[in-house]
Design a protein around this nucleic acid. Structure first.
Lengths: 245, 245
DNA sequence: ATGCGACATATTGTCCACATTTAATGTGTT
DNA sequence: AACACATTAAATGTGGACAATATGTCGCAT
């Protein structure tokens, strides 16, 4: 008897088999909570507590935590539990750098494949972004801003790159929480930059699209305060001047 | 009471906390088995069977399967179990295309950062590759060939990209199993191509390095037989015209 | 004989209880 | 008072039992 079974029939389930179990709901809740910055980096994610919150056993919580851990937004320490990731400056640089690599490739493919319908969709997203900025809905804007990049990835039409970019975008959100420098306030410029990118895509100007995207990412990078000391200065830094007095 | 706890002290454990539990051993075994093609695509991975094989409960097997699933080498279907992935031609194209994007970025960084020590390491790997080809150790060569690309990623020094490339390399191995066309036999050329890449890296010729790498990936792509019909093309398509008759 | 439906089997999903490990507290000694 | 060690408490790691779901088989009705 052959052990390899034809799983052709299973293939058709690839699309819908995602929301069969209750995991996905809990996963979505936690993922959103982290991305919308309702869960700060460093927060301990106790299995018992989460189990009670969602009224499920630790088993399913563990599954969700492992998934989040693989996506790097959660870090699991052996025998010590799961915590919302606190990306180090090095990790942050890697993520931003990886985005330059991936999104350059994405832009080159987008300018070739984009349809007029795609442009319309992007413009619609841009309007929503602008709206959320006007209304000062910061966390919503963070999500929308990420969605814009993911929409470009969708247009490029490479599922693998899209999945990877989703991870990178999530991490970027965490990074912004941790390293947002105080001198900001002009984050909205991002919105303009997105507009320029759309223009380049519409014009199918590959080099401009790539350049604008990379400049956009670098602009994000410069808004951050990565050069300083390690992030969680906790306690030590906070009390460094009053301690010993 | 603040819910965010300082986990600064935990950070130091990031490096060593990887091999605390027995999961990693089982994961490694299964991962190798898949990559070395001892587990064919489509093979059902029963939790009970694996649990008996490794003398652990289903709990730990499930954990390993979920990890493999996230890395795309295993597919889990709700209530129906886990199977070794059978990448479709589309998925295969995406993976190879993603590799072009990622490895171009990696090469640009490698050329700038490589040291003479790095070159020596790469040359050592090349020799091992040649040796494994001479000895006709196919599965060993597959692994070594992947390691070469991962070594370049390490030199580039971006952990995020390295992790992603590891996934892509794994998938590439599965793809080769499924779509290896019969006309091959000159796979060994890969080894030469790796040699040329090393030369470009040594010379710090960025454009040559990028070009050689992309050509190398495209050469791999051409060895495959992706244009044919879907491997086990979805019944739907096959019977779409005769159904209902 | 064929087609439909109910039952039986096997596998996965979930929960709970126990084992193990870690971190913290308390105690005793120097 | 400071350090080292033993004890204690809490959280995670693991295993096994039960429930839910899908598949395969058998029987019955037409």
């Amino acid at each position: 008897m052959k052990q390899t079974t034809p799983i052709a029939e299973l293939k058709r389930d690839q699309g819908r088999t995602k929301s069969g179990n209750q995991d996905d709901h809990i996963y979505g809740q936690m993922f959103s909570a982290i991305l919308e910055q309702r869960l700060s980096p460093g927060t301990k994610l106790s299995e018992d507590v989460l189990g009670e919150i969602f009224s499920v056993s630790r088993t399913v919580i563990r599954k969700v935590l492992q998934r989040l851990a693989h996506e790097k937004v959660v870090k699991i320490f052996s025998n010590r539990g799961a915590y919302v990731s606190e990306p180090s400056p090095d990790e942050a640089r890697d993520v931003l750098d990886a985005r330059k690599v991936v999104e350059e490739g994405i832009m080159r493919r987008v300018v070739k494949k984009r349809t007029t319908a795609d442009i319309r969709i992007l413009e619609g997203m841009l309007k929503e972004e602008a709206l959320s900025i006007e209304r000062d809905e910061h966390s919503k804007w963070v999500a929308l801003s990420g969605d814009f990049h993911l929409a470009l990835a969708e247009i490029a039409g490479n599922q693998s790159l899209t999945d990877y970019l989703r991870e990178l975008v999530s991490m970027t959100s965490l990074i912004h929480v941790q390293y947002q420098s105080k001198k900001i306030g002009n984050q909205s410029c991002s919105c303009e930059e997105h507009g320029h990118i759309i223009e380049a895509v519409r014009a199918q100007d590959e080099e401009a699209a790539v350049r604008l995207m990379i400049e956009h990412i670098e602009a994000c990078e410069e808004q951050l305060n990565l050069d300083g000391k390690e992030p969680i200065s906790d306690l030590y830094e906070i009390f460094s001047d009053v301690a010993g007095s």
